[in-house]
Design a protein around this nucleic acid. Sequence first.
RNA 1: GCCCUCGUGGCGGAAUUGGUAGACGCGACGGAUUCAAAAUCCGUUUCUUUCAACGGAGUGUCGGUUCGAGUCCGACCGAGGGCACCA
Length: 864
Amino acid sequence: MSTNVSRYDPSVSEHGWQAAWEAADCFKAEGPDCGKPKYYVLEMFPYPSGRIHMGHVRNYAMGDVVARFKKAQGYNVLHPMGWDAFGMPAENAAIEKGVHPATWTYENIDAMRAQLKSLGLSFDWSREFATCDPSYYRHEQAMFLDFLDAGLVDRRESIVNWDPVDHTVLANEQVIDGKGWRSGAPVEQRALTQWFLKISDVADDLLSALDDLTRWPEKVRLMQANWIGRSEGLACSFELEAPAGGATHIDIYTTRPDTLYGASFCALSPDHPLTIALAADDTKLAEFRALCAARGTSESEIEGGEKLGYDTGLRVRHPLEPDWLLPVYVANFVLMGYGTGAIFACPAHDQRDLDFARKYDLPVYPVVRPADDDATFSVTNTAYTGDGVMFNSRDLDGLAPDTARAQIIDRFETENRGARQVNFRLRDWGISRQRYWGCPIPMVHCDTCGAVPVPRADLPITLPEDVSFDEPGNPLDRHPTWKHAPCPKCGADATRETDTFDTFVDSSWYYARFTGLDDARPTERAAADYWMSVDQYIGGIEHAILHLLYARFYARAMNRTGHLGTDEPFAGLFTQGMVCHETYRDNDGNWLLPEQVDRREAGAFLRTDPTHAVEIGGVEKMSKSKKNVVDPDDIIATYGADTARWFMLSDSPPERDVQWTQDGVDGAWRFVQRVWRLIDTHAEALRDVPTSAGAPADLSQEGRALYESVHRSIDSVTQDLDALGFNRAVARIYNLANALSSFEPTGKPSDHQVLKAGLEALVQLFAPMMPHLAETCWQALGGAGLVAQTAWPKADAAALEVDTVIMPVQINGKRRAEITVSKSADQATIEQQARAEPQVEKFLDGKPIRKCIVVPGRIVNFVV
RNA sequence: GCCCUCGUGGCGGAAUUGGUAGACGCGACGGAUUCAAAAUCCGUUUCUUUCAACGGAGUGUCGGUUCGAGUCCGACCGAGGGCACCA
């Protein structure tokens, strides 16, 4: 080995290669007529918070590997990047620092773009946009009008989740444990008039189409299916004994019509119209309603949800037994937003009803008993929800519950007193937000004409720039002039809608916009038809429901309004795990940054004070609040982008969490240097060695072995990358590097040829992961052009076919020996050879062989 | 409470359709090089029997299917995630 090996310095080479790729326009997507198959790879675009974090590095490193790999395989690759740029943090910055949200946002974008570029990611930057660009959101406004025309938009008053800290409305999906997903504040219930997108109209399709998303993680499909929550049941009425509150009957929905004979009471939601009507003349009921509203979705849920009720004194007739009267309660556990907001209760077979019945001393009649139980079956404090046999149910006795269910529904339908109904948990998507930094909703409110769409010619409705954030609430609402506009219909003085879109609207169609940046339209249909759907979408599991469900709805809405030709935005989805790090605290319980800690065998100490012990906490997701963060800029400055990328792809399977460790980075860094030494050691001697397709003639035994090893590596890395098995690909590449390092050329020309070809293959195989190092190595080996523009190596099928194979020999399932046999040997030959093996003979010990299993190429097993 | 996923060395993790468990990396230990260190290179590293073996055990626990189980089936234990009054 040369005594004068150089070190690879990424700080010198990386910028140069980034410039070279840009100069060669390497990553610009080609047009539909380029003759190549298309491949659209997309990573979830970031919110421009100001700095990228390690989670971004992992996410974009994975996407970049896919993009570069597919490009090398001959695909026309679209790999764009943009910014999810509207949202609350910009307003918070305005409040805290007095900087305008737009200024703050665009400065952050500039900073983060520079960071992403320093990672050497193969983005087609010519398609970059931010969702806060008027050139983007004008089309969002136009599409909203299209959706309005297509009947996909609704405006109605509803009880909404109000976030008292952010002063805005939240969708159900955005309320987590009764708290706002961003602010963490307990959510209140308020009545507000809101714009809705009618996502529930396509609930059935969103559910059934999940079956075809075979390249989505099963977990995400399941989560969406649960969220959509389809159920089938009976809608019917219970007649009031006497009309009350303007009603003659109560409409209910039930999935358990089979348990009708076990009915005990009916219950109304506190927000049910009849409840509200009754409360007008009943102060106690009004007080009860206020109590329920105050408890809202917040505290009561966290504390376990105690059942509360109020007896209205009303009675309803049982629909199957007109003489049977049931009491009507108002109950806090009945939701107005689902079904009809009223239920009949069968406490024996529903835990909530049972809890309620026990509390208010209402009867419990079991009507389903386990098949192996008898008619004395009773229920105490646990409702029986299992399958079994109907009893105490007149004509239904003896039937299975699902038969009874069908029979009852049929009966109601024939008698015209009810109907089979499908309900969904999924509600319409409320998109109004009382914020400034969002896309204005292009509507005008006129006293005479109502809500009137802004004429398309007047779009975009842009945000005013002179706004203040010195008081809570929406600056658009209190702006002196912005909201005043004539009614587009009658010309009278009117006011603009001051709400802006939920930012999830912005991210619901950006993938489509990337396919073609038409000035006049949201999409270029031809380009969109060519590129869509996204072949591989990569992002965090935290978007399994919110973003991914909205985007699926939006694609359908865009399809219906002619902007897209497909319903599904993402044909393939991959959800990567989080980046975690150890946590550290000092004696006073303060969190410490990793660089403040000196980590030693015996324990950890404060770097600045070796006597100050540090407690090492759990490994958790990197977060600013726990200070267990590592800044990508620091890592890139010290080790280069390739080391950071390589480490992010090594070891842990991509769908799982990965732990960032200094040892791991050091390991990646060592490999970078090792590869460079390997190339540098041989580069000069090999520069003029010709490489040929196929195996060089006259190979030595070692040369032959290396050749086979190289081609096995090509084959398996290709398979691993196809399956997004980055950690497996990394392991294969280590193997290949080891094989190349230990190869000693004898001086035979064929040895040099096979070594050079092997080194070139190595460089090409790791190029998608460490693209800068790959270019430097490629150049040193005298390779033509850029690796980034080189075709993916092909495995020589002949080299993968080995002629002899080592087979283990088992006796009674225990491995006792191995034999080397010809690949083509038949079973009898293999058995004979195995039998002749001394070890085997020893263990067989003359015992009679009961059976001999021979799986050619795999195993021999003697049963004695 | 309901639903889902996962349990493999000191650690991260490999292991086509059931077919040599522990690839690859990290860490650790021993050695080489060095005045010394860093860097690098070589070797060992699942546990275990006094050393060694082509000895025994071994993929959370217990059982089953099979010539053969990390992989399939059942029960249990543990960890993680999702949903949570959806009638």
